[in-house]
């Protein structure tokens, strides 16, 4: 049994999720706690919100970012607002010709991302530099067939599944704050990853909960998403 307070890295939603009945387990890297014991696979297929804020991720920015990432074996192309699945199950989000964000797989294995961070040297003069997105942005996942209807209440973008295909990215305003929304289905379940300012995470979480209320208002957790992943 672990608690968020045992670690220096904590999700900004720890109090809200504990009140909602979350149990806590250590992340695979052991550097934070992540919520567990929330939701069901059926709820996740209908509509559920999951907090992955303590999961590993990193960004890179700079004019030579795309070739620098390709050199490191990351699967990506220089197409802005497209996501690319990685062989380990992670995601590479190409935000612009000069910026990417890498999300860890649901297993939470941070070996590859940690190595990217550790191996970067200013002296290499590659014209790409790391951005510590794990600190600046909270990470939510909204899963389920009702997700596009829920988003229609808080965002001007058309997220209907036939209009916003798998691996599309929208950098936009959701509930009046800037957010990066990426559709990356988990198994056969529609899934929208949201990265938004961590300082506004509680406000944003409240907005998601409010918008989700009419659809059942369910929370889920990483273990449920992994169940979706395995079918």
């Amino acid at each position: 049994m672990t608690t968020p307070e045992q670690h220096l890295r904590r999700t900004p939603l720890r109090s809200a999720l504990t009140k909602a009945g979350a149990k806590w387990t250590a992340t695979p890297a052991g550097d934070a706690a992540i919520s567990d014991g929330l939701g069901s696979i059926n709820a996740a297929r209908h509509l559920a919100i999951t907090d992955l804020s303590t999961m590993p991720r990193i960004g890179f920015k700079g004019r030579q970012t795309i070739p620098a990432m390709q050199k490191r074996g990351i699967v990506l192309e220089g197409t802005a607002n497209r996501a690319f699945r990685q062989p380990d199950g992670g995601l590479c989000l190409v935000l612009a010709a000069s910026e990417v964000i890498l999300l860890s797989p649901l297993s939470g294995d941070d070996g590859k991302l940690q190595k990217l961070h550790d191996d970067w040297r200013l002296d290499d003069a590659e014209r790409t530099y790391p951005m510590l997105r794990r600190d600046s942005q909270a990470w939510f996942v909204v899963t389920g067939a009702k997700a596009p209807e829920m988003f229609a209440k808080i965002c001007g973008i058309d997220f209907r599944l036939n209009k916003f295909p798998d691996l599309s990215i929208a950098q936009t305003s959701v509930a009046k704050i800037s957010a990066i929304v990426t559709r990356a289905d988990i198994g056969s379940t529609p899934a929208f990853h949201i990265l938004a300012d961590s300082a506004s995470a509680l406000y944003f979480f409240d907005c998601l909960i409010d918008a989700a209320q009419e659809f059942g208002n369910a929370l889920a957790c990483r273990s449920i998403l992994r169940d979706l992943e395995s079918g």
Binding site: A80, N81, A96, G156, I157, A170, Q171, T172, S173
Partner: peptide, 17 residues
């Protein structure tokens, strides 16, 4: 709502600009 077409992101609500 007026829509403005961002060269990078496509058509978006004017409130995003």
């Amino acid at each position: 709502m007026k829509i403005l077409n961002c060269p990078l992101n496509g058509p978006r609500n004017i409130s995003e600009f």
